[in-house]
């Protein structure tokens, strides 16, 4: 049912866990689908004004209650956002996450899970550090 690549990510996810004092936390998922993801990110802040371009995700971890695809996609999205600026991460789409994994049709929603958690984490970051939003661009 699942590709070799997906099984590899599912069986040995590299980014599982919580981050103490995370700068932002994002949750996504739906109990009806049976998949729920928590994403924790640590951000390297910059004194420069343009936070989208200058604030960098230096670490991220996840905890996911879900099927094999949901766990693999959670790990993959973390892998993709590490080292990226907020602006770069924000542009990621579910397709970027699922690329190369050969997701079964009924599992496409699992690639959306990670992106939703990321979006919610970014919103959380914006709220917590509302001053960054007020910076003139």
């Amino acid at each position: 049912m699942y590709s070799k690549k997906l099984m590899k990510y599912f069986k040995k996810p590299k980014n599982v866990g919580k981050i103490k004092n995370a700068d932002a936390v994002g949750e996504a998922g739906n109990p009806l689908c049976g998949d729920i993801m928590h994403m924790y990110i640590k951000i390297k802040k910059s004194t420069k004004n343009d936070w989208l371009k200058k604030h960098i995700i230096e670490d991220a971890k996840f905890e996911t209650l879900g099927c094999g695809a949901a766990i693999a996609m959670s790990d993959r999205v973390i892998e993709l956002i590490k080292g990226k600026t907020i602006g770069e991460a924000e542009k990621l789409t579910p397709d970027d996450v699922a690329k190369g994994f050969d997701l079964p049709k009924q599992k496409i929603h699992c690639s959306v899970l990670g992106i939703e958690a990321l979006k919610n984490a970014i919103i959380d970051y914006e709220c917590k550090y509302s001053d960054i939003k007020q910076d003139p661009a």
């Binding site: 099984m7 049976g34 209650l65 879900g66 099927c67 949901a70 766990i71 009924q106």
Partner: peptide
């Protein structure tokens, strides 16, 4: 989640079924 458990067991050569239709 049942399906991920099924997959892990399958990896160990054990065939079960999930209660969820996932």
């Amino acid at each position: 989640e049942g399906e991920s458990l099924l997959m892990l067991l399958d990896g160990e050569g054990i065939a079960v079924s999930t209660g969820s239709a996932c």
